[in-house]
Design a protein around this nucleic acid. Sequence first.
DNA 1: TGTAAAATCACCCGAAAGTATGAGGGTAAA
DNA 2: TTTACCCTCATACTTTCGGGTGATTTTACA
Lengths: 158, 158
Amino acid sequence: MSMSLNYFSKFRSVFIYGVSLAALLFLLKWLEWRFIIVNYTFEIYAGFIAVIFTGLGIWLALKLSKPKTTIVTVEKETVITNDEFVLNENVLDEMGISKRELEVLQLIAQGLSNQQIAEQLFVSLNTIKTHSSKVFEKLEVQRRTQAVEKAKRLSLIP
Amino acid sequence: MSMSLNYFSKFRSVFIYGVSLAALLFLLKWLEWRFIIVNYTFEIYAGFIAVIFTGLGIWLALKLSKPKTTIVTVEKETVITNDEFVLNENVLDEMGISKRELEVLQLIAQGLSNQQIAEQLFVSLNTIKTHSSKVFEKLEVQRRTQAVEKAKRLSLIP
DNA sequence: TGTAAAATCACCCGAAAGTATGAGGGTAAA
DNA sequence: TTTACCCTCATACTTTCGGGTGATTTTACA
């Protein structure tokens, strides 16, 4: 709901209140002159007016009071498949593994043979052997399968 | 806050209202007899009472009205490491991979050599070679690294 | 410009991995 | 009981891997 409409409703309430007040006073005056008023004491009028306008006040207040909002925060667990890989560069530095070596490591993890890796990287088979050997040294492993396993543990590979 | 306390606060408000009403009426009566009242018209009293009790009504309403609560649901993302592994037995059946073969596959994935696997399973090296060969056939791969990669993709291995 | 690290390549050799084939024993279903 | 599958093991052979060593070229950096 918009602000202007809210303000109009407030204004209307006040207007109704004013009209009601006038009407009631008029009614009372009319009653006074016409009927039983002369016999009634002032206290009864006062009490009547008090009760009426208390009700009016209550009505006004309820009409005008802003709804108090209590924000209840409900935690909803959302399962997020944690499949985004972030390379652990710290480990990479500590181990002293170069870019090229990491590249070879990744291809090893994909199941490629040294020959295939050599072809893919446009270098000789011997070069790949050297790279993989260095990687194994740095990872302190003996086999490529071990290297892959350890590299994944160390977040060097997805 | 407890219910009983809430009810007490309501009761107290009503009590205060009653007392105030009585006190005001008494005050007005006193004022009437003592001072200026005789000269004032009835309408002024009525208006005065009306305004006072309208205020009182408003106060009462605000005091008694239940706070309207608007429940706002806030979704809070909670990252859950999705590390629970469930073996995909369907694929296992489709591929026709036996228990023993899966066992060998798991040890291969852990980076063990065929010799180590043979020792761990108390069988000969040749047996492991046979098992691994069959696994490679069934997984349609040529190397153990490929087998590991594919087995993980197929949820045959954590 | 000199130097250290990285990248490239080569050769050798033994170990490991993988292929092919066959065979014997066990179990469970047809 | 036969058939089919699994597990086991063996032999023979080929390929790949991994370790060791050494060398040349690039690249980055002080």
